[in-house]
Write a protein that binds this DNA or RNA. Structure first.
Lengths: 197, 197
DNA sequence: TGACAACCGGAGTGATCACTCCGCATAATC
DNA sequence: GATTATGCGGAGTGATCACTCCGGTTGTCA
């Protein structure tokens, strides 16, 4: 049943052509850049132009704009979750937690669609983002647990509150944007409120 | 100085007809409701239907969708500023400040376009909203000053930081929406961070 | 009440967008 | 190199939206 040479695809499907793989990656990268610069209302044609392909190619790999957006979100959230995991082995749990929080907010101040991605990850609207969102929440929850055990964060709040604060801070950063000093001081207020009394 | 019968319009313009005034108010009210329910992407036709008028009427009174949105924002921000002014005479300045903050966030959790209005008022994108935005900022600034003088709020932050936090909390409330308990606890964190040490 | 200007309704217009379709190019396999 | 299925490009399609225009209506004032 198994052919001698051609490496079989994981599932029943055939292995895709090399240029198809290349173009898929190109489109995803371009979509991330375009949505970060212009928001999620940017047209699919702009993504195609940026990727150097035709619109047909974009829609072949991502049959719907919604699917494309989801793929971008999953990529961003996945990278975040990885960063959070890396911070799990830091020596100071409190510093690690706050550093991650600040990192996310800084990121949101630059990338335009990112706050929306976070917000969706918080409420799990789509089925596809659910998995990655859960991964992020698990990682963030671990950071929070360690910080609370170390006495760096108050114990009377949980992951939902943290996520709400994180989404809010990110969205505020995206809209206020410019002044980094204001952003830093506003973030300091939240951090002070999070510390154990 | 006052003419016998026809009340003169404020400026050089003529006094508009009674039905025109009535329709303008109807449209504004409908727009506020529709945008609150469906967000700012709702179509102008929906606003017209809700108001019981034709699209032509909507565009006669508000020549652009942007202008219509601005008018809605100005109305909401104006009401907010009035509420803030009313709280200026409260006996407990700290309680007044925090109550207003919470009031705004609660409002944002319900009305859909409201957080966007706040965000714009914070950065003054449009010329028209600038005036009302400034009014709101002035009122909020007064509340903040009194609260700081009473020792209820730390002194090392200013109005820009408060506005950033307010916008962030409002936007988070709009997206998280549902769980009022989570919202309350997240807000409590910000409040604790704002209190004087 | 009559006359006129102001105002109204809603079909029509042009632009934009997500998405499709098919003739052509090309990677994979012999 | 020949063959073939997979993938590509981009003009085309239908839907939606903001906005316009004009024949009919209505408020206003004499």
């Amino acid at each position: 049943m198994s052919p001698p040479k051609p490496a079989a695809a994981p599932d029943g499907g055939r292995r895709p052509r090399a240029d198809a793989l290349r173009n898929r990656a190109r489109v995803l990268e371009a979509a991330e850049a375009v949505f970060a610069e212009q928001g999620t209302t940017a047209s699919t044609e702009q993504v195609a132009r940026r990727a150097g392909v035709g619109v047909g190619t974009v829609f072949r790999h991502f049959p719907t704009k919604e699917v494309l957006l989801e793929a971008v979100f999953v990529a961003q959230l996945g990278r975040l979750a990885t960063e959070a995991d890396a911070l799990m082995s830091a020596e100071d749990p409190g510093a690690a937690f706050f550093a991650f929080f600040a990192r996310v907010v800084d990121h949101a101040a630059t990338k335009n669609a990112f706050a929306a991605a976070l917000a969706e990850a918080g409420v799990d609207v789509r089925a596809t983002t659910a998995e990655t969102g859960q991964e992020l929440r698990r990682a963030l929850g671990s950071l929070l647990d360690r910080a609370q055990e170390a006495g760096a964060v108050r114990r009377d709040i949980g992951l939902p509150e943290i996520l709400t604060l994180l989404v809010g801070a990110s969205q505020a950063a995206e809209h206020v944007g410019g002044d980094a000093d204001v952003r830093a001081r506003a973030l300091a207020v939240i951090f002070d409120g999070l510390r154990a009394p």
